[in-house]
Amino acid sequence: MMDSNLKRDIIMDHYETPRNKRTPQSDDYLKKHMAADSCIDDITIYIKFDGDKIVDVSFDGVGCTISTASTSIMTELIKGKTVKEALHIIDEYEKMLSEDSYEEDLLEEANAFDTLSKQANRISCGLIGIKGMKEILENYDK
């Protein structure tokens, strides 16, 4: 279990200076728009591939701390990975949020959300951007 001060610092950091938060100007990205039913979170995910490899990931939109930070962290985790590797990381992240055992080492800073499962009403915040990535990856036809 990650120390809660460290967790807070990680989430603050990714919320206040989110990584890869931009709308790409070129049209060689696959994108997925995610809008929550029950809150204002509205995030679009962009992924650029080279064959099997994710060469760039970014996101844009509005979201709360949890949705922004979790999406930001995940862009860093899957950038440079293959589709299979990225889906594996996302899978482990989802396991963490469902309180199943998971590979901690693989999730790095995403471990900051290791107790998010206790806040039932906020789990969807921690999933909105990541689900968008998953959908693009699962539908990607290399």
């Binding site: 809150c39 204002i40 709360c64 806040q119």
Partner: peptide, 21 residues
């Protein structure tokens, strides 16, 4: 502070409010 985050904090203090549109 994003509305839902502040509402979440208020909730942790026993205060029920609603955030959103």
């Amino acid at each position: 502070i994003f509305a839902q985050d502040a509402a979440g904090y208020l909730n942790s203090q026993g205060i029920a409010v609603r955030s959103g549109t």
